[in-house]
Design a protein around this nucleic acid. Structure first.
Length: 720
RNA sequence: GGGCGGUUAGCUCAGUUGGUAGAGCGCAACAUUGACGUUGUUGAUGUCACAAGUUCGAAUCUUGUACCGCCCACCA
């Protein structure tokens, strides 16, 4: 008997070695030679491809439990399809993660007593680049540690030269097609990070703030933001509001305001909620999205009140230069002194838009930015989903996706950060026009003849990530693009249902006329043992690499899969993983027993002289495998794994092997031989079908029971 | 304000098309020195949130209620 089988299974000495064997074998590449699979007579899926593009993990740090989950899921799908004879391609990647990485790096700078605002853009970029490249290595090593059978020869980084160039080309193409425009529109501004943000990069936070009622001429207006009211010269009410019938649209009223007398204009607009406050409000189009829309509709003046650092501008008179928080009480005090404060509601609860990273209150600003016109693009995406060209797992994400698509507004793709793909455009400071300029040839403004400078902004990271399936496969030309696009499955977290998935659908359809993937598989959050969200502040973060070093990666993978249906969040308990470590050892010992107790009997793949008892055992196993195959085909990996676990331990080991002890020790040579053949057969089926879930253990055992044979990774999936 | 998901054993959760309720961990008792103690055998614990309905039959389908969680949203 083989020496290797005498000890308990030790994942720590096995996993690295096995992964190296796989990587060297070339079987992660779909082109690798596989005799049975390359023959249409032995491979029912001959010539078919199966493709997954890996959501590129952030290159700025280490893997977390969520990464381990998605790598496991995608690896299961890839290994399963590979064993079924498909040319299975899984392309790994690394994400520069623009804004996110820049924030990580800014924190590092802060610790060192430095700040990005004093640095040359180029120097900052180079520093972050070096930082990212260093961390990228750890990330990749950890992806390997999870067992990812992805094709490293095709790995892409989101700042690879061709990725940058193609992203910039898309920008130009969209501009030429009228789908990208430079607009002076209201945007989300983070005063801490000094950049604009898209709508999906902001969150709402419930805050209790005072709500003030001020006398504004004959009206009483309600506001939670008195500090923006300096420039307010439009007073708005609903056209159907009978309380204000006597006032007409466009009517001018002289009144006393914060810094003296002003002339206000009455505006009637249906955006006003008659039930809210007094039904009358003044507007600040420069610093509020609703107000901006009203001003657009009626062609009203817009004036900035607050600068990009969050301080009041000279229009605020004596308050100029003050930060919002300092200015607010002083302004209220002054209005009160002038007798214009009517009352204060101290318990006003409302949602305030904040930066999703630092929770700083968003100060909306009007700014020249590049925008993607979403309506026509979204229409095509909606059509594709309605025609069932894209399937969602679980299905309810389809509705969520469609709702978002139907309601999405134009997308601001300009970011005032250096860490990203630069926007290849020239900007005219005189008339603020902008023109894409891929070749850096434009110097004068076509609108006003003014001098043009290079745009210093970078793309929103989702602008390039949205094109990821095409970029990775070498669009617009190349064999990979022809062979593997559209891809099969996009497996990603449900938190990316808006940030990423819709952009990919849009870009896929726009660039190639094809959907980028047939199926979207959403996984949930990996929570702690109590089902609570993992967070550094709670101290309940589970490091997958650490856990795996204790129990084995196969055990962690099983722990992540079993009991975790698509779309729902899961709880990761250490005890659960320990249980699967025990299972790995069980499989190890089953193999030991079968080899030991059948010494001298060679497995015969064509053996048919089974006793009726063994024939029925074989049928039982065949039925199970049919069932499991159906689970695999329908993305019920959690069920497939659990059934295999149960069969292997509680049927094969606890019952069949126990019964076999007497048979194998007995005198009935026919029965003995038949059972030995069945046990070998069952072991092989179990190892094969467990392989997508527990690749290291099963590959190791396969090598031991089948010395000199081919690797398990390319064995055919059991079909009986 | 709108939408989605959940509510099943002490804990974490499965339960694919409706057919006498499951897993892991935990718990109790027992067993066992050669496949494995990272073990085995046996067992206890559930009006499947609540109410009504459809059905021969509902954890599963329908409607409503309650609570929990998540997401979306231009509530001045």
């Amino acid at each position: 008997m083989d020496q290797k089988l005498t000890k308990p299974y030790d994942p720590t000495t096995t996993e690295g070695r096995i992964y190296e064997t796989w990587e060297k074998s070339g079987y992660f590449q779909p082109e690798a030679d596989r005799p049975w699979a390359d023959n249409p007579k032995t491979n029912p899926n001959f010539g078919k491809t199966f493709t997954i593009i890996m959501p590129p993990p952030n290159a700025n740090g280490h893997l977390h439990a969520g990464h381990a989950l998605f790598i496991t899921m995608e690896d299961i799908m890839t290994r399963y399809k590979r064993m079924q004879g498909y040319k299975a391609l899984w392309v790994p990647g690394a994400d520069h993660a623009g804004f996110e990485t820049q924030i990580v790096y800014e924190k590092k700078l802060e610790k060192e007593g430095r700040s990005r605002f004093g640095m040359e853009a180029k120097d900052l970029y180079d520093e972050i680049y070096a930082f990212t490249m260093e961390h990228k290595k750890y990330m990749e090593a950890e992806v390997r540690a999870v067992g990812a059978s992805c094709d490293w020869s095709r790995e892409k980084f989101t700042l690879d030269k061709d990725v940058i160039e193609k992203t910039q080309t898309t920008f130009k193409k969209m501009y030429d097609d009228g789908l990208v425009y430079r607009g002076k529109r209201i945007i989300n501004w983070c005063t801490k990070h000094q950049t604009s943000l898209s709508d999906v990069e902001t969150e709402f936070k419930e805050k209790k703030e005072p709500f003030y009622y001020f006398k504004y001429g004959p009206f009483t207006i309600g506001t939670s933001r008195p500090e923006t009211k300096f420039g307010d010269k439009y007073v708005v009410m609903h056209p159907a509001d009978t309380r204000y019938q006597e006032y007409t649209h466009g009517q001018q009223i002289d009144l006393e305001w914060i810094n003296g007398p002003i002339t206000a204009t009455v505006i009637k607009d249906e955006a006003i909620d008659m039930e809210f406050g007094t039904g009358v409000m003044t507007i600040t189009p420069w610093h509020d999205a609703v107000d901006f829309d009203i001003a657009q509709r009626h062609n009203l003046d817009k004036e900035p009140i607050i600068d990009f650092k969050g301080r009041l501008l000279p229009i605020a008179g004596e308050f100029a230069g003050l930060k919002i928080a300092e200015a607010r009480p002083k302004i209220v005090e002054k209005l009160q002194a002038k007798g214009l404060l009517e009352k204060i509601d101290e318990n006003y609860l409302h949602n305030v838009k904040v930066c999703y990273k630092c929770e700083t209150t968003i100060e909306p600003q009007i700014k020249e930015q590049w925008f993607v016109k979403m309506k026509p693009l979204a229409a095509k995406a909606i059509e594709a989903v309605n025609e069932n060209k894209i399937k969602f797992i679980p299905d309810n994400y389809r509705k969520i996706f469609l709702y978002w698509m139907e309601n999405t507004l134009d997308w601001n793709i300009s970011r005032q950060i250096v860490w990203g793909i630069s926007i290849p455009a020239k900007i005219c400071d005189a008339c603020s026009d902008g023109t894409p300029d891929l070749d850096n040839t434009i110097t004068t403004c076509k609108t006003c003849g003014g001098e043009m400078r290079a745009d210093t902004d970078t793309f929103d990271t989702w602008f390039s990530s949205g094109q990821w399936p095409q970029l990775v496969l070498g669009y617009p030309e190349g064999k990979d693009f022809e062979t593997y696009h559209p891809t099969d499955v996009m497996e990603t977290g449900h938190d990316l249902i808006f940030k990423w998935v819709p952009r990919m659908v849009i870009f896929g359809l726009y660039l190639t006329g094809q959907i980028p993937f047939h199926t979207v598989y959403m996984h949930g959050l990996v929570n702690d043992a109590q089902g609570k969200k993992m967070s550094k502040s709670k101290g309940n973060v589970v490091n997958p690499i650490e856990i795996a070093s204790k129990y084995g990666m196969d055990a962690l993978r099983m722990g992540l899969v079993i009991g975790n249906p698509p779309g729902s969040d899961s709880a990761l308990a250490e005890n659960k993983i320990k249980g699967y470590k025990n299972f790995a050892n069980k499989v190890w010992n089953i193999s030991r027993f079968i080899l030991e107790s059948t010494e001298g009997i060679n497995f015969d793949g064509n053996f048919s002289a089974f006793t009726p008892a063994d024939q029925s055992l074989k049928q039982e196993l065949a039925d199970l495998l049919v069932d499991i195959t159906s689970d695999m085909d329908n993305y019920r990996f959690h069920l497939a794994a659990e059934k295999l676990y149960h069969y292997t331990w509680h049927r094969l080991a606890d019952e069949i092997i126990e019964d076999s002890k007497n048979i194998l020790k007995g005198e009935d040579v026919v029965a003995k031989n038949s059972r030995a053949q069945f046990l070998h057969f069952a072991l092989r089926q179990v190892l094969k079908s467990l392989h997508p879930f527990m690749p290291f253990l099963t590959e190791e055992l396969w090598g031991i029971i089948n010395p000199g044979g081919s690797l398990l990774i390319i064995e055919p999936w059991p079909h009986l």
